[in-house]
Nucleic acid binder design. Structure first.
Length: 710
DNA sequence: GACCTGCTGCGGGCTG
């Protein structure tokens, strides 16, 4: 019995909580963590008690009498740290172990006290660890040189991201400070592939996955309201209102602008029909305090119903209490994201989750169904892995050099060689990057030692140095001295124009560009705000499922009549292409003066194909939602040129270099890639932005089937 | 035609 393995104070805690039993993941974790010295990844759905699954055994096992911080908890969000602090502190009261929050918004006195006497548990963000390595280099060892366990929350949010590589590197640097290596316990949602999660600990062979697959019953309903313009159809909003008015609901409309449109529209309908008034919007551009109020309301108002229109801000583990219903408007870009969102409803034991899916465009309807069917087949797209993160390596070089008071090149290279985040990068590549950093004065050599160069000082001494991701510059929106949120500067931002923000309508009264502020007053009618973002990435398997749907006869009982009619008419259209092998055949629409190529391939393949077409000077227009290229050439011309596209491949580096040197503004470059020599920037783009190998395979195997009578 | 995330150290002013 795992309960009996726990120390007496922990058992008392469990009894006081009134839990009649431990969850499966908790039982498994308690047994394994207490009786072995492996690293673990605990994977199960939201609200299945993962935090306790890690902390109950760790608190039993670790001797907190030793000097130094014993347990480090790392989270991607400050709000999650604040949430977890209360739970962990409550638990630690039974043990006389102190818990310290350490993040950018945590108070200074707590940090100072910890430096004086490092002990207990610290809750921290990856960026704060980075900042500590840079600014408190000599205290890091004193604080974190005797760690026993590191708990990483929401591991799935780090995997496959630059931020994740940075965390991996920082964990490896911490490991190098510890005489006896600490163990890592990662907490994760259920994901498509655990091998990368295991690599996260830096010791894949000694990392085990404890997986709780118990899924919730999900009641799903698809509704189709075809939208003709930019705004959501009024009958969709009426339907959505009726469906949500007597429940606690989260609505995910996919973009910040649309989030505001939904919140304000529903609020207006509610006012007309005398319904409740608890309509909110929650996304990154809504002021933090306003968002905290919304979270507080959702968590603490047991009686009142509410409706929060939100983006992925409410996808991660922040506790917002019980939700009855989740609404998704148009397709999610990934199945992983769909699962996270659905998981927010029916959190209480025994409750089913309710999902409503509204589609407004035909391709979005097909993609939504594809995601749902793949979810039912237990498919979750594997994370996209970056093989060699040269950019994060360059950043970490600056961080390590900054944290030293001069370091020998050989010793720097040795440190990096031991860093598990960069194990795929060769020594000569590390040397080439160091040389480039020296050439640009980001590093400097004084006698034998490397130090930060004159240009490097500007980068390293800036607040923005600690993170791996870029952020946009925004204007603060202020009403009567209160900050409501932030929006980017756009043509829409002019005096007397009305905008939506934080589920309210505002009139712009004054724009102070220099101070970066807009003053607003309440108004009655307005437009949704404009935000800028980069397009999402759809996985090949989703596109494959979409073509499957179009070439089969299945009628989906979970889709309403208008939706089924739309599917039928799309199937009619695609039946004019005689396709009998959807693995390799693709529809080619031949019209009088243009062609349409339906690739049904991933975003990265389409992007690469577009690059090839551009290089071959074939004018093209890509409609990514339909995965369709429109070309203004004849079929004969296309077939003549098609094979020559492959001959571009050997020259691709030159073409991409050229792009980087000329209209590089349009390419999605990472924050720190500017620290790299050009060929390394090309490598990064080839590996992360494009997908050359899969595109070559596609070019070689695709058989175009046209609709023309021949 | 997406979405999200974090941050030092110092000095000045204010509050209790």
């Amino acid at each position: 019995m795992s309960f009996n393995l726990l120390s007496e104070p922990i058992r008392r805690y469990i009894r006081d909580q009134g839990w009649d039993e431990l969850r499966p993941i908790q039982n498994a974790a308690i047994d394994r963590i207490i009786t072995s010295d492996s690293n673990y990844i605990l994977a199960s759905r939201t609200a299945s008690g993962k935090t306790e699954a890690a902390f109950l055994p760790i608190l039993t096992k670790v001797n907190f009498k030793e000097p130094g911080v014993q347990v480090l908890y790392i989270s991607p969000l400050i709000s999650l740290i604040n949430d977890q602090f209360n739970r962990i502190e409550e638990l630690c009261k039974y043990l006389d172990v102190s818990v310290t929050k350490w993040h950018g918004e945590a108070n200074r006195s707590g940090k100072e006290k910890l430096i004086k006497e490092p002990n207990g548990i610290v809750l921290i963000t990856p960026e704060s660890i980075e900042a500590m390595f840079v600014n408190k280099t000599h205290q890091v060892k004193h604080l974190f040189g005797n760690l026993k366990y590191v708990v990483v929350d929401e591991v799935h949010a780090f995997i496959g991201t630059d931020r994740g590589i940075q965390l991996k590197s920082v964990l490896s640097r911490l490991q190098q400070l510890n005489q006896d290596s600490f163990k890592i316990v990662g907490l994760s949602a259920t994901i498509g592939d655990y091998s990368e999660a295991k690599k996260f600990t830096g010791d894949e062979l000694n990392t085990k996955v404890l997986l709780d697959r118990t899924a919730k019953e999900i009641a799903v309903e698809f509704r189709y309201f075809k939208s003709t313009g930019d705004a959501l159809p009024p009958d969709l909003l009426d339907d959505l209102y009726e469906e949500t008015k007597d429940n606690k609901v989260l609505i995910f409309p996919n973009s910040r602008g649309r989030t505001e449109e939904v919140a304000v529209s529903l609020k207006k309908i509610a006012a007309r029909k005398k319904g409740h008034t608890n309509y909110f919007s929650h996304h990154s551009s809504v002021d933090r305090e306003v968002r905290e109020y919304v979270e507080y309301f959702a968590k603490n108002n047991i009686r009142q119903n509410f409706c929060i229109s939100c983006t992925s801000t409410l996808e991660l583990g922040i506790d917002i209490g019980s939700v009855d219903e989740v609404v998704q408007i148009d397709a999610t870009h990934s199945i992983a994201s769909l699962i996270q969102r659905v998981g927010r409803s029916g959190r209480k034991k025994g409750q089913t989750s309710n999902l409503f899916l509204y589609a407004t465009k035909e391709w979005s309807l097909i993609q939504s169904i594809a995601c749902w069917l793949l979810y039912k087949e237990d498919f979750i797209e594997p994370p996209f892995i970056k093989e060699k993160s040269f950019d994060i390596l360059a950043h970490q070089i600056l961080s390590i050099v900054r944290g030293s008071s001069g370091i020998r090149p050989s010793s720097l290279i040795e440190t990096l060689r031991k860093n598990t985040a960069f194990s795929t990068i060769e020594i000569h590549e590390v040397e080439a990057i160091i040389t480039y950093l020296l050439e640009n004065d980001w590093l400097e050599k004084i006698q034998q030692d490397l130090i930060i160069g004159v240009s490097g000082e500007k980068i390293v001494n800036h607040r923005d140095f600690y993170s791996a991701f870029k952020t946009e510059k925004n204007l603060k929106v202020i009403n009567a001295g209160n900050k409501i949120g932030e929006i980017p500067f756009s043509p829409q931002i002019i005096q007397d124009e009305n905008i939506l923000l934080a589920a309210k309508i505002w009139k712009i009264k004054d724009i102070d560009q220099a101070a970066g502020k807009i003053h607003v007053i309440p108004a009655n009618d307005g437009k949704k705000p404009m935000f800028f973002g980069t397009a999402g990435m759809t996985h090949s398997r989703v596109r494959e499922k979409m073509i499957e749907i179009l070439y089969e006869k299945e009628s989906y009982s979970f889709v309403d009549n208008p939706g089924r009619q739309e599917i039928n008419s799309m199937r009619d259209f695609f039946s004019s292409f005689r396709i009998d092998n959807i693995r390799i055949q693709r529809p080619l629409l031949v019209a009088d003066n243009y062609l349409e190529l339906f690739t049904f391939e991933s975003t990265r393949i389409n992007r690469t194909l577009q690059l090839f077409l551009n290089i071959a000077e074939i004018k093209n227009d890509l409609k990514e939602d339909a995965s369709c290229f429109r070309l203004e050439i004849s079929k004969e011309e296309l077939f003549t040129k098609w094979n020559s596209l492959l001959s571009i491949v050997p020259q691709i580096d030159n073409h991409i270099s050229h792009l980087l040197e000329t209209w590089s503004g349009t390419l999605d470059r990472s924050k720190w890639s500017f620290l790299l020599p050009l060929p390394y920037q090309v490598e990064l783009l080839k590996a992360n932005y494009y997908d050359i190998a899969s595109t070559v395979r596609f070019l070689e195997t695709v058989v175009w089937v046209s609709n023309s009578v021949e």
